[in-house]
Simulated scan of single mutants.
Amino acid sequence: MLVTSAHAGPQAEGAERTGTAALPEHALVGYLHTSFANGSGYTPLSEVPDSWDIIQLAFGEPTSTTSGDIRFELCPQSECPGVETEEEFKAAVAEKQAAGKKVQLSIGGQNGQVQLATTAARDKFVQSVSAIIDRYGLDGLDIDFEGHSLSLNTGDTDFRNPTTPVIVNLIDALKTLKARYGTDFGLTMAPETFFVQLGYQFYGSGKWGGQDPRAGSYLPVIHAMRDDLTMLHVQDYNSGPIMGLDNQYHHMGGSDFHIAMTDMLLTGFPVAGDPDKVFPPLKPSQVAIGMPASPYAGNGHTPPAEVTKALDCLHKGTSCGSYQPHGSWPQMRGLMTWSINWDRYSGYGFMRNFDSYYGS
C-alpha cells in the first residue's frame, strides 16, 4: 500500500469489541486512510458508502521496526481538516457494525516495517494491538506487512515448519489474538505477490543461498493460520512479472494477471518447485483479489471491463483468455482495493463495478 505519512500516539482505554454479522457471500474490502493524509483527501469513516463490507483502517505502525509496539491514532486536524473527534470515530465504528459491516485495524503498510524478532516484541505486539482493538471496539486485524518485515533465515526451507523468529513469533502472536477474541474476530492479510506467488519459483535464500530471503516469506504465516484466516487478498499490483502455474510470466494490469495469481491460491502449488512441499489451496471463501482503485492508487490498475473478465473466469469459467485456470470457484469471496479514498477521488468507479457485477 502506498502512503505518504502516518502518525502515532499513546494508547487509551475505550470501547469494547462486540460480535458483528457474518460476511456476505461476496464482499468488497477497502482500505481507509485513517491515520494520515495524501493526495486523495480525507474521508471520515461515517461517510464510507454501505457497499464496503470490510473497512481496513490504515495503518497501525510500530514505534520502531523491532519493538512490536503498535500505535494507531486518527490523523491530526492540521493534516486532515474535518477529521473526526475520537468519540465521533468510535460512534462511526459502532454505526458501521450496526449496519453489518466490519471495521478492522490494518498493521504495516509501506512505511510500517514490523519485525517480531524476539518473544518480548511478540508479547508487546499482542498487548498493544489488543489495546487498539479494545479502544475502538474493532472487529479484527489485517496484516499488511511489506518491505523487509518478513524474510527467512538461511536454512529455513520448509514453509510447513518455519524456524525464523520473525515468522514464528508473528504466527504465535496471531494465534494468541485469535484465541483471545474468538471465532468472530476477523483475520485478513494483504501480502504482495513477491511474498506469496513468487514462492512457486523461489523460497527464501534457497537451498544454496544467494536468493532474496523475502521470497515467499508469507507462505508459512498463511499456512499456519489457514484455519483461522478470514480472507487473503494479495496485492495484484506494484508487482513485477510473476510465473503462473502454466510456467509463463504474467504481467499486472489485465484480467490475465488476476486469473493466474488467483488460480495459484485456489489450486495450490509446489513451493520452489518441490513436489514434496506443496502449498495447499485455500478455500474459495477465503480468497479475494487485491487491485488499485484507480491509476492514481498504484501501478497495475485494471480497467473495469478487465476486472469483470477476471471475475467471470474465476467464478464461471468464461472469458478466461489465454490462461486456463484449474477450475471455477463461484464462492470466491470478492475484491479488495487500495483504497476507499482513492476510489472516492475517482468517483467510486471500482465500487460501482463491484456492485454492478454482484447485483448489490
Rank of each mutant, 00 (worst) to 15 (best):
S255T: 07
H223N: 14
K175G: 07
D263C: 03
S360N: 15
D227F: 10
S130T: 14
L23S: 00
L265V: 04
P162R: 10
H233R: 00
P213S: 10
V166H: 04
G210I: 04
G210L: 06
T262E: 03
S205V: 15
D50Q: 10
G209F: 06
L187W: 09
Y203E: 01
A117G: 11
P270H: 12
N111P: 00
D355L: 08
Q235A: 08
D355V: 06
Y200S: 10
L311S: 05
P281C: 05
G204Q: 11
N169G: 07
G290T: 08
D123M: 13
T230Y: 01
F350R: 00
D53M: 01
F59E: 13
I143K: 02
S339K: 08
V3A: 02
Y218V: 06
S217G: 03
P44V: 06
G244Y: 11
M243G: 00
G9V: 04
T118I: 04
L177T: 07
I259F: 12
Y345L: 10
G155K: 04
A15D: 01
P275W: 02
L311N: 04
P330A: 10
I259A: 11
P241D: 09
D134R: 02
N238Q: 05
M261Q: 04
T154F: 03
A15F: 00
T302L: 07
V48Y: 08
L170P: 07
Y249D: 01
A131N: 10
G210F: 02
L232V: 13
D228L: 11
R135C: 09
M332F: 06
Y358R: 06
Q97S: 13
E86Q: 05
A27L: 01
S346L: 14
V271P: 02
L141C: 13
D156P: 02
C80Q: 07
T66N: 14
T4L: 03
T318F: 08
W342T: 02
K175R: 15
A37M: 10
L311D: 03
G137M: 03
P49A: 02
M336H: 10
G30S: 07
W342N: 08
T318Y: 04
G14A: 09
Y31C: 11
L57I: 08
Y323R: 06
S360T: 11
A12F: 07
R333H: 05
H7Q: 08
H315G: 03
D123T: 05
S51E: 14
Q201H: 00
I132A: 12
L116I: 06
L187M: 15
C313D: 01
V271C: 08
Y357P: 10
R180Q: 15
Q248E: 12
D184C: 07
G254I: 01
V29L: 15
Q115P: 08
N38H: 10
M291I: 11
L116C: 12
P270K: 15
G19R: 12
H301R: 00
K96R: 14
W208M: 05
M231W: 02
R214A: 14
G359I: 03
T163C: 01
